[in-house]
Amino acid sequence: MSETTPLLAVEGVAKRFVKGLDLAARIGARLGAQVREEVVHAVDGASFSVARGEVVGLVGESGCGKSTLGRLVAGLLEPSAGKIFLDGALRERLTPRERLAVQMIFQDPYASLNPRMRVGNIIGEGLITGKLARRREIPDIVAGLMQQVGLDPSYRNRFPHQFSGGQRQRIGIARALAVRPQLLVCDEAVSALDVSIQAQILNLFMDLRGQLDLTYLFITHDLGVVQYLCDRVLIMYLGRIVESAPTAALFANPNHPYTRALLAEIPRLRQRRRDFKPISGEIPSPMDPPPGCHFHPRCPHAMAHCRVEVPVYREIAPGHGAACHLNDEKNVKEA
């Protein structure tokens, strides 16, 4: 870390969900039955950092743990292992008010707003819980926030169901902005919206970035969105980050076999009448992940080595790194 401390640093963070045994199973286990607790490794030792002002994309297929990682970063879940630093300080040491610096924008604009609360109260809630404003100042602040995200402040007494999907997402953004966050974690924030509205919301994110000096962690499976607005991309597979690179470098020169497979399947207007070759096989269950490199059962270049040893994340170019044994071999040959 030569330059300034990153806004967000994640070190070896893991999240395990344990489904405990119920009474009957516990008695069964005591009597010698073959039952064990089911453990899901949703995030399995992820490390990365996000610099202030950066827009980082976190990409992976469904079920790879990217949403869990986002919730860990936003403090909605506690990590089972590892450390999360905000601005150089360990998150557990921060005061509740300091933790508000990370806010989340949710995927489903229908589920993420309380249907029984008026929009003005939804947006102003963070001001009350964080004790950031006096009660009588709140209406003015809420009106300002609504204007900032492109909503008419006169609608503050309406309920969420009276708004369209795009408008609701704006309400969610205003709610997050109320507590003056530095980092926004956007969990598939536009994938539930119409394509025309998606662009408006993405533009809103970028406008706000300029106005408020925001940093973004964009969780998505849409590589088009990544290419459009991210500075850097993290590729995640089954709980681990397998590649990290500046956006241009990643699209030009993907290193990890999984990244290459992902990029090869982006639909393009130029190529018609071609068959898409899905990555062979299903994503393995995180309850019983394959040993060694998690990708080896689907990898075209898998070697015997890959089934045993977990590949280490290595930098292969400035700012570009990947966790793959193919890079080890190259190193061996060059040495």
Binding site: G75, L76, P96, S112, N114, R116, T129, G130, A178
Partner: peptide, 25 residues
């Protein structure tokens, strides 16, 4: 529901989440 998560993310207390968010629904 995600709106409960959102309230937690804003630092709302258990009592506030229970009686202002969950109860009315």
């Amino acid at each position: 529901r995600e709106y409960v998560e959102a309230a937690r993310g804003l630092g709302a207390s258990h009592g506030r989440i229970l009686f202002r968010h969950i109860l009315p629904n």
